[in-house]
Design a protein around this nucleic acid. Structure first.
Length: 553
RNA sequence: AGUCCGAUGGUGUAAAGGUAGCACAACUGAUUUUGGUUCAGUUAGCCCAGGUUCGAAUCCUGGUCGGACUACCA
């Protein structure tokens, strides 16, 4: 019994188009501009475009929208491709808008020939002032009525580099009184004597977005061109060009971009965080970038599932960070190998345990997955345990250690706390326990039932590691909405570094990118800066913590 | 002010004229050698007003509220 999932509005459109025979196959595309890194919002768009194509047996292109040589770089191209592949998607064709420059130039000439484009000598300021505003119509440029021949000659001269940057532009001749500002004779070509990351110095004129995007869709026979809501005003222009140029009629559809609580998503703001060193780079684990999340320990599957769960629509939204966290816990719970690590250590001594004995204990690697097997963990007289697992004056429901209380040491024995010592500052420095020899895991004949189980690491065998704990980047759930600069709302505690964490020896062999569940503490993965000499783990996300909630009451 | 878009529990998203559902979050409880997982349950929603209809979240009209648009960026 698999209940049919309801369709989102794009699926409805596609199914109608297919049923009515408008298209035999659908074709989508993901069109990033190579001027920055991909973030979780892009993941939504990637997931949408690729999975739509897959679902309806169509194709999806990757097309780099590289019409602005000033901001675009090959380095971004490579990172974007890497991120998409890592997310688990493969494109049918890899294209670049810059490969269409010659075709686009021809389209512009066609517009000129039809009397629908003209070369304007006005300055940027003049053009802006003649544009009018939301309430008032614009006025025609004095160059609007140049002859076709003159426009042709001038446009060719622009291409040949006879003019400097900004001296002239090519504009579409539409309607300076149009209520949609984008239709008031939009600029379609500008002069930029700049080196392009792919076309080199072949061109000194470059098409604007509006004169490149729709045409590129058309060239590739994209049937459903999906973009975010802010491009909705561009659609009339998109259609106008296709109509006047008499080329393949691609259609644009818009959906609302995803926002996440406690973070910012605009490239501009993310770039600012990077440039002003509020984070260590685009791949800082606190960043909502794909590379940051990967480094933090998010699995590709969890991100895909997040995108699927959130769905799409056309209304404004801000998705709860906790949904993302749920998705990553859900995936990692099934796949992460369990291990023990003590983040804030205090020493526990088992007074009745032989000092020269080391026992090998078998622990399951993942209770959710028997095929993950077991591992051996060494047990001895002195152990590191978590400082928060002991209390001098424990409250009623504290199922951990305190004088007289008993707990199970995970995979080992039940111990009873007898005594503890404090230093002159009042800090607990050691805890003494006695263990119940017949309570060993797997062969427990003690008949004793304890409510709490705590994790531990044998002092004698423990290895030291660094652990980086991450928290939300911002203090407020919608920093872009707050008064003043969004950076005032950065969370000063978004990163805390623990220099001396004790880990089981098995963990010291872990490779970069490998992820684990540190028992009772959360999901962690090996950071790219980690070395065999100095292991570094990033906390991806904590485990749900019912006790922490209890304490807040 | 002009044009366009949107409005369903705290959040995200369904219901195409016929029982307002799902997920997250929150809260109870059960299970548990992770206070994890799992399981059972609870709280909580159709922007407003009219109209059409036996019946409206859905269709119509009018409001209200929110958002986008005035780069030689994409």
């Amino acid at each position: 019994m698999s209940e049919e999932r309801s369709l989102n509005f794009l699926e409805e459109i596609i199914e109608t188009d297919l049923k009515e025979g408008k298209y035999k196959n659908i074709h989508t595309r993901f069109p990033p501009e190579p001027n920055g890194y991909l973030h979780i919002g892009h993941a939504s768009s990637i997931h949408l475009n690729f999975s739509l194509a897959k679902k309806y047996n169509g194709k999806c292109n990757l097309r780099f929208d590289d019409t602005n040589p000033s901001t675009e770089e090959t380095e971004y191209v490579e990172n974007i491709k890497n991120d998409i592949k890592w997310l688990g998607y493969s494109w049918d064709n890899e294209f670049f808008t810059s490969d269409y420059f010659e075709t686009l130039y021809g389209y512009a000439q066609k517009l000129i020939d039809k009397g629908l484009a003209y070369v304007d000598d006005s300055t940027a300021e003049q053009i802006a002032s003649m544009k009018g505003n939301l309430n008032e119509p614009g006025i025609n440029s004095p160059f609007r009525n140049r002859s076709v021949e003159e426009n042709r000659t001038l446009f060719e001269a622009m291409r040949e580099g006879k003019f400097g940057d900004g001296e002239k532009v090519l504009r579409a001749k539409i309607d300076m009184a149009h209520p949609n500002l984008l239709m008031r004779d939009p600029i379609i070509y500008r002069i930029k004597h700049e080196h392009h990351h792919r076309s080199g110095d072949r061109w000194c004129i470059y098409p604007m977005y509006d004169f490149a995007h729709g045409q590129s869709d058309s060239i590739e026979h994209i049937t459903h061109s999906i973009c975010t809501l802010e491009f909705i005003h561009h659609r009339p222009l998109y259609n106008w060009f296709i109509e006047q140029l008499e080329i393949f009629p691609s259609h644009q559809y818009e959906f609302a971009r995803r926002n996440l609580t406690y973070t910012v998503m605009s490239k501009r703001k993310l770039l600012q965080l990077v440039n002003e060193k509020h984070v260590t780079g685009w791949d800082d684990p606190r960043m909502p970038t794909i590379s940051g999340m990967r480094r933090r320990g998010y699995s590709a599957a969890s991100i895909r599932n997040f995108c699927e769960t959130v769905g799409i629509a056309k209304r404004e939204n801000i998705v709860d960070l906790s949904l993302l966290e749920f998705c990553v816990r859900e995936d990692l719970n099934k796949h992460a190998i369990r291990a023990m690590a003590v983040l804030d250590p205090v020493k526990l001594v088992i007074t009745n345990y032989p000092s020269d004995l080391s026992e090998e204990l078998e622990l399951e690697n993942n209770p959710e997955d028997e095929s993950a097997g077991k591992r051996t963990v060494l047990f001895s007289k002195e152990l590191w345990i978590e400082r928060e697992d002991f209390m001098e004056n424990p409250p009623k429901k504290f199922f951990r250690l305190g004088v007289g209380l008993m707990v199970r040491l995970k995979g080992a024995y039940i111990v009873r706390c007898d005594d503890f010592q404090k230093d002159e500052t009042g800090k607990v420095v050691s805890i003494q326990c006695t263990y119940i020899p017949e309570s060993r895991s797997g062969s427990d004949t003690s008949g004793i039932h304890v409510k709490g189980t705590i994790h531990w690491v044998s002092v004698k065998h423990a290895q030291c590691a660094e652990v980086r704990l991450y928290d939300r980047l911002f203090k407020t759930d919608n920093p872009s909405n707050e008064e003043g600069d969004f950076k005032e709302y950065l969370n000063p505690n978004s990163l805390s570094v623990l220099q001396q964490v004790w880990i089981e020896p098995e963990l010291a062999k872990a490779k970069v990118g490998q992820y684990f569940q540190f028992l009772r503490k959360g999901y962690f993965c090996v950071d790219i800066e980690s070395t065999p000499e100095r292991m570094i783990f990033n906390r991806t996300v904590t485990l749900k913590d019912a006790w922490a909630k209890e304490l807040k009451k």
